[in-house]
Design a protein around this nucleic acid. Structure first.
Lengths: 164, 164
DNA sequence: ATTGATTTGTTGACATGTCAATCATGCACG
DNA sequence: CGTGCATGATTGACATGTCAACAAATCAAT
């Protein structure tokens, strides 16, 4: 596993560098755009967007965490802050006394409605507009395959309890 | 800029979802692999890798920050921790009394030599092996174009002082 | 040379994320 | 029914990153 390492050749290094820079830089650029043009951070936007996609704008915390693939504690901390800001509200869950229902407040709804156009424009202008159709398709399948490969290697899940 | 937003259609949403998941998940998967198989975190690996590429294994803090496109304070905090762990050492800079030269210690060198094969294997097995040549090339050009587009929009730089 | 702007780096306050521990509830199976 | 394990969520300690303020050295321009 050590002596027979297949190192990256020149061309592979360039691809890897481009991808690494994209992965490191894209999220913060997106955050910057959101914070500049709205009152929401990227993670706050994610939560509100998830809530928007639910029928009634209400989701259990568990389901939000699953939809976003986040740790529970991360969501819990964030929801506490968002609740303090008045973006979401929590009500007890009737069917399961352990759970909580998270809903958007009017302020939360207003915030995401205001933020969404700029966010979508950012995605369209920086991902779809610059790429040819072929490149877009290839990007799609490449991203899907890479993720599948990492999953198969058991390195994707956050809480990696590899059934020790 | 608000009423004429071009929203994403079904297919575009799928591409965007795949890319977003990749961007969010890849880095932490890489970190997980490194921490599992070595004593280095992803950011520590980055610093040591940058130092490795310098001729004599010595770089000024400024140049490391530039190479990694990091904020100065981030690097400063990290170097303090890495120095405490004995991975790097700092010496004053002769030519510029403000600067510091950062060098790898023997322990730092040992650590990255031990971590590198696993890291390269991770990259090869999860990026290059699963993709066809066409996909790899398309991924390369797509990543490059997306980054160029974000740069052109002025949203790439960390310290965005947009010449107000 | 002196002044003022720029560069280099550190620091401290704060925001955010991870991890392990905790607690209450629900569920499965005897 | 209980008993024990799984689930949902919170908490606190800690790791890490950002931001703005700072200090010291250099540079530029007169």
């Amino acid at each position: 596993m050590s002596s027979d390492t297949r190192w990256l050749d020149k061309g592979e290094q360039e691809v890897w560098r481009a991808l690494r820079e994209l992965i490191w830089g894209f999220e913060s650029a997106m955050d910057r755009q959101l914070i500049r043009d709205s009152e929401l951070s990227g993670v706050e936007y994610s939560v509100l967007a998830a809530l928007s996609e639910a029928e009634d704008g209400v989701m259990r915390a568990r389901d939000i965490a699953q939809a976003l693939d986040w740790e529970r504690s991360r969501l819990s901390h964030l929801l506490k802050r968002m609740e303090a800001k008045g973006l979401v509200a929590r009500t007890e869950c009737e069917s399961d006394a352990r759970g909580f229902n998270i809903s958007m407040t009017a302020a939360g709804h207003k915030a995401i409605v205001r933020a969404a156009p700029g966010h979508v424009s950012f995605v369209r202008e920086n991902i779809f507009d610059p790429l040819t159709e072929d490149e877009r398709d290839a990007l799609h399948s490449a991203a899907t395959k890479i993720q599948a490969s990492i999953r198969a290697a058991g390195l994707w899940e956050n809480r990696g309890a590899p059934k020790a």
